[in-house]
Simulated assay, not measured.
Amino acid sequence: MSEIRMLKTFLAIEKHGTMAAAADRIALTHAAVGAQMRTLERVCQRQLFDRSGRSIQLNNAGRSIIEQARTVVAAYDSLLRGVADTHDIEGSITIGSTASSMGFLAANVILLKVAYPGLNVRLSHGSSADLERQVRVGAIDAAVIVGEPRTTTLPELWEDLYEEPLVLLANPAIAPDEASVSSLLKRYPFLGFEPASLTGTHVTSLLRRLRVEVSPVLEMNSIAAIADLVRQNVGISIVPRLRHAAWSEDPLLCVKPIPGTTWRRHIGWYEFGRQPRATAIVKQQLLTVLAK
């Protein structure tokens, strides 16, 4: 990048006052500095120095491009630092996730290996409450968990990633298009979401607003397991619509929106205390994919 070298020499002359002083500071001969500046003038198609006196000085045209030269050099140096940073990110970190978000997290961690070959991300799964506790005691570096929106300050950090609305999940064999949510809930066995969980409390509140009484045949804290039982036509359920599950293309699942429901399950990034720089890389990867 000869143009960048010339600009750096040009800025050294402006800083130190003369070509001779600049040459001494940047370890070039006076002749080499002079040759670079004549080349820079040809590139810019204008004279940048006043050579009429005993010493060579910047003229008005030269002074007019100083800030632009600084901007270009700074951008180039920033680019090089970015490339260096890519190779400097290495070592091991551990990121936790709930079961329903693990596929999303794992897929993006795999993508990061291309850009950051020295980075080793270990994955851990568990409940949101357990993962948050592990983050706070330093057992893991960060986690993708379920939680309500919160305003946090360092050392605690919560950042919303995405939301999932509650939907009714049924087997298409028992759920014609014209069937209402209430009629299906009254007619078929109900597969409940664990009532003590955050999602479970909102499902219970929704059923109360719908004025529907259900007697769950079982209660689970796994959306994937509930969806599999629905596929087998064991019953129906109200669950968050997983953002990264292709339910709409599944011939054994019927997904019905629930009129009047406003609550959304919030999936967020949680970390605590001073974290390795690599955790920010993982978080940014998730946010970049979600923004597409």
Rank of each mutant, 00 (worst) to 15 (best):
V83W: 10
L80T: 08
G17F: 03
I26S: 01
S97H: 01
R70A: 10
G62S: 05
I95S: 05
T98M: 08
T29D: 08
Q36C: 02
I65T: 03
T98I: 15
S92Q: 15
M102C: 10
A32H: 13
S97F: 04
Q36D: 13
Y76I: 05
R54C: 06
D50A: 05
D24W: 03
T29Q: 01
L112M: 04
V114W: 11
V33M: 02
G82Q: 12
A107P: 01
R51Q: 11
T18W: 04
V83G: 10
T29P: 02
Q45P: 00
Y76R: 11
R51H: 10
A31H: 05
K113E: 12
I26V: 03
G96M: 03
V73D: 08
A20S: 13
R81P: 01
Q47P: 11
G82Y: 11
R42E: 11
I65A: 01
G91S: 08
T71V: 13
I65F: 05
L79K: 12
A31F: 04
A99P: 02
R51K: 14
D24Q: 14
S55M: 11
D24R: 14
S55K: 12
P117C: 01
G103F: 12
G34Q: 11
H16I: 02
V109Y: 08
R46I: 00
R46N: 00
S97N: 01
K113L: 00
L80H: 14
A107D: 11
Q47L: 10
L105W: 00
D85L: 13
A74C: 09
M37S: 04
V114N: 12
G34V: 00
T29S: 14
R38F: 03
L105C: 05
A106V: 13
I56C: 09
S64V: 04
G82A: 14
S52F: 04
V114G: 07
I56H: 02
H30V: 10
G62N: 01
I95F: 05
L79V: 09
L79E: 12
H30P: 06
L28K: 06
G96F: 04
L79D: 12
G82C: 10
S92W: 06
N59F: 03
V43A: 10
E90S: 15
I56R: 02
L80Q: 15
S100E: 13
A115T: 07
S97A: 07
M19R: 14
V43I: 15
V73E: 07
